[in-house]
């Protein structure tokens, strides 16, 4: 663990509500200490220079202020030695900072050689999905929170669907961040060192609910606890078709579709009265129309641009649900 370069304990202040220091949330990953060390190294250098600059300015302001009886003196207009000194010394200091910073950065980008667990991250407007794939995971679980086990290294394989926009995953307590870019697979690794719940933010502006695209990282101590959490968070098999519909709706649809006829700005049509439209023709923006039935619901989920209802933007991203989930959605919609 790196030495705390001070100020860390300046933290008795009421600002530190969620633990951690005045400046930072608690260090909870293997790379956090390095990042903070670099931060405080630069901070102290800055304080020295800043106090020097402002101190000299203030001193001159007082000493040489315009007043009766005081007159400016002509002094030399340059001094090569002095100027070289105040160019070269900061340059050397900066190179040192660069060295320290790069050393820690290399720690951040190079995962350990073995034992790294892969998690696929899919960010889309405005939700996170984490899929635990490959060994040692036995089944492809997908969750909304990120579940991790303490002291195990993880590699994130991150992307976002082609029709979606750029997002960025930021876990302040881990001091890590990486963009999710459509059409690319970016990687990010970390190893949590503390158990508990931490914030996970989207930090690349992604539209209306950018500021709601927040979830939690849950770090637990044991494999068993992890398994219990992942399995119970969301498992379509654990629900009846009846109960599953509202769950899917709450997880995926509420940011654009209401149930009470209210219209969300730049969102889609409300689901109110959907059941009454069942089996009837519906008109679309491009002049076509089709009957509202099961295939229509499936197409609307998977190819949302195909039938855009008149008066609404073509803004929906596509969803791939399994058969049971789809049945649940259909049942849910028919009841509206």
């Amino acid at each position: 663990m790196m030495a705390d370069l001070g100020l860390g304990k300046l933290a008795g202040l009421p600002l530190a509500q969620s633990g951690g220091s005045f400046w930072f949330p608690p260090q909870s990953s293997t790379v956090a200490a390095g990042s903070d060390f670099t931060y405080f190294l630069i901070l102290w250098l800055c304080i020295i220079f800043f106090v020097g600059i402002c101190g000299a300015t203030l001193y001159f302001m007082v000493k040489y202020r315009k007043r009766p009886g005081h007159k400016e003196e002509i002094t030399s207009t340059h001094n090569t030695r002095l100027e070289l000194a105040w160019s070269i010394i900061p340059l050397i200091l900066l190179l040192v900072v660069f060295g320290v910073s790069t050393y820690w950065y290399l720690e951040m980008v190079n995962p350990p050689n073995s034992g790294v667990r892969e998690i696929r991250v899919e960010a889309s407007q405005w939700k996170w999905r984490f899929t635990y794939s490959g060994a040692p995971f036995t089944k492809n679980w997908t969750t909304k929170k990120l579940y991790l086990i303490k002291d195990k290294p993880y590699q994130m394989i991150m992307t976002t669907p082609d029709r979606d926009v750029i997002h960025s995953m930021f876990i302040p307590a881990f001091r890590v961040k990486q963009d999710c870019v459509p059409g690319r697979y970016n990687k990010l690794w970390f190893q949590p060192t503390e158990s508990g719940e931490f914030d996970l933010f989207c930090t690349e502006y992604c539209g209306r609910d950018h500021s709601e695209m927040i979830t939690k990282v849950v770090v637990v101590e044991t494999e068993a606890e992890w398994k219990r959490l992942v399995e119970t968070e969301y498992d379509p098999e654990a629900y009846t078709i009846e109960d599953l519909g509202p769950v899917i709706y709450a997880d995926n649809c509420t940011s654009c579709h209401t149930l009470d006829g209210r219209q969300i700005e730049n969102g889609g049509p409300s689901f109110q009265g959907f059941g009454e439209r069942w089996g009837k023709e519906r008109k679309f923006a491009d002049g076509t129309s089709r009957v509202v039935d099961e295939t229509y619901v499936k197409d609307s989920l998977e190819k949302p641009g195909m039938n855009v209802v008149q008066g609404y933007p073509n803004a929906m991203t596509s969803f791939n649900f399994n058969e049971k989930e789809r049945e649940a959605i259909i049942a849910f919609l028919r009841k509206q």
Partner: peptide, 16 residues
């Protein structure tokens, strides 16, 4: 600006 030129701190501070 130095905190942001330094890549190890920039990763944490970027877009905050």
């Amino acid at each position: 600006g130095l905190f942001l030129a330094s890549i190890a701190t920039n990763v944490h501070l970027h877009d905050t």
